[in-house]
């Protein structure tokens, strides 16, 4: 019980500090009123939402704290692939060529956050939308499908994202 309580306090602290950092970033003022209001608001919202921000079972530091440099590298790669796939979507739109298909596959990622980011990245990129994420099982609508083999489809759709994300949130 004591470990659970300590973990709750730590989650509450991390949530409040993150909220306060965003508050400082957006207000960009050092008035006493602004600082105190932000602190009170952060603590109140942190007390209400720390269960959502960091789930109780994510009791490992690396599962919710990203490696910052790899995260930035991942975001740059994500933006690059976003533009690439937008251009492919544009071509498909003009030529009217498509082979839409729903595929299922699994992911090797362990952390909930990493799985969420993976499904988000999949929704961005190779002409795919994540329809459902159930534990480690992804249901994906693939607009420009090239295969109906589910493992091969998983490898193509996940692409390099999964490997990068495994290093960002191990």
């Amino acid at each position: 019980m004591r470990a659970a309580r300590a973990w709750r306090v730590i989650r509450f602290g991390i949530t409040s500090i993150a909220l306060y950092a965003v508050w400082l970033l957006f207000t960009a003022s050092l008035d006493a009123f602004s600082l105190i209001t932000g602190a009170v608001g952060s603590v109140a919202i942190g007390a209400l939402t720390h269960d959502v921000f960091i789930a109780e079972h994510e009791a490992s530091y690396r599962s919710f704290m990203p490696n910052p440099f790899l995260l930035v590298a991942f975001l740059v790669f994500l933006i690059y692939s976003m533009y690439l796939s937008s251009i492919q979507m544009l071509v498909a739109l003009v030529r009217g060529h498509a082979s839409p298909r729903v595929v299922h596959f699994r992911t090797r990622l362990k952390s909930d956050l990493a799985r969420m980011v993976l499904s988000n990245a999949i929704t961005f990129t190779p002409g795919t939308i994540t329809l459902d994420l159930d534990d480690d099982h992804l249901t994906v609508h693939w607009f420009l499908a090239t295969t109906r083999h589910s493992r091969a489809a998983g490898e193509i759709v996940k692409g390099r994202f999964e490997g990068y994300l495994r290093r960002v949130w191990s």
Binding site: S81, Q88, A92, H97, A98, S99, P100, T125, P126, G127, L144, A145, T146, T147, H149, A152, E155, I156, V157, G159, R160
Partner: peptide
Amino acid sequence: PVIRPARRRFGGGKV
């Protein structure tokens, strides 16, 4: 349906 082989770019050439 029209297959687009360019999509293999994301598969790392394995498939």
